[in-house]
Amino acid sequence: MAELTTAGYQSLRNYVNSESASPPPWDYIELYDETQSAITRVSITGDTRCQWLDADGDNTLQVEISLQGSDADIPQPTTIKYSALWDASSGGNQLTPQEQFAEATLNQDGDSVVITHSLNIPQ
């Protein structure tokens, strides 16, 4: 389960501090291969493959992304092993460290994987 980076904590501080400019939304998830090289970054609320799963008041939030080998932004073959949350579609601040999960390889159009990125928000 991912914690927050320094930039993630600062984003929370900026959100709470009414004197700060509004921070960018935590709306992007980036996926990485086994060498920790970026594969793709997508909007959680703007991409139909993604969704927030858990907003019930506990300290764990989850993002789910469902991928197919036929997705245009996933080259074949690709092994996906890490994910991280960002505050921009490119550039921006990485808000969580890369979270490692059981790797999944997409070799052909019919392959699929569902990845859940968990984020622990301190109480």
Score class of each variant (00 low, 15 high):
Ala72Glu: 14
Trp86Asp: 01
Gly92Pro: 08
Thr96Trp: 11
Asp71Glu: 14
Ser89Thr: 08
Lys81Gly: 06
Gln100Ile: 06
Asp111Phe: 12
Ala102Glu: 12
Thr79Met: 06
Leu106Gly: 10
Gln98Tyr: 11
Gln108Tyr: 06
Ser112Met: 11
Gln100Thr: 09
Gln94Phe: 03
Gly110Asp: 14
Ile115Trp: 02
Val113Leu: 09
Leu95Tyr: 01
Asp111Ser: 12
Tyr82Arg: 07
Ala72Val: 14
Glu103Val: 02
Thr78Tyr: 02
Asp87Thr: 01
Gln100Tyr: 06
Asp73Val: 04
Ser112Ile: 06
Thr96Glu: 08
Val114Leu: 02
Thr96Gly: 05
Asp87Glu: 06
Asn93Lys: 09
Asp71His: 13
Leu106Trp: 10
Trp86Leu: 08
Asp73Cys: 03
Ala102Leu: 11
Glu99Leu: 08
Asn107Gln: 11
Gln98Thr: 12
Gln98Phe: 05
Gln94Tyr: 04
Glu103Pro: 02
Leu85Asn: 00
Ala72Pro: 09
Asp109Glu: 13
Ile115Lys: 01
Asp111Gly: 12
Gln100Glu: 15
Ala88Tyr: 05
Pro75His: 08
Pro77Asn: 03
Asp111His: 14
Gln108Thr: 14
Leu85Glu: 02
Glu99Pro: 00
Ser90Leu: 05
Gly91Tyr: 05
Gln98Pro: 00
Thr105His: 05
Pro77Cys: 02
Gln100Lys: 08
Asp71Lys: 10
Gln108Ile: 07
Gln108Lys: 14
Asn93Ala: 09
Thr105Tyr: 07
Ser83Pro: 00
Gln108Pro: 01
Thr105Cys: 10
Ser89Ala: 14
Gly92Asn: 10
Thr78Leu: 05
Ile80Lys: 04
Gly91Cys: 08
Gly110Val: 14
Pro77Thr: 03
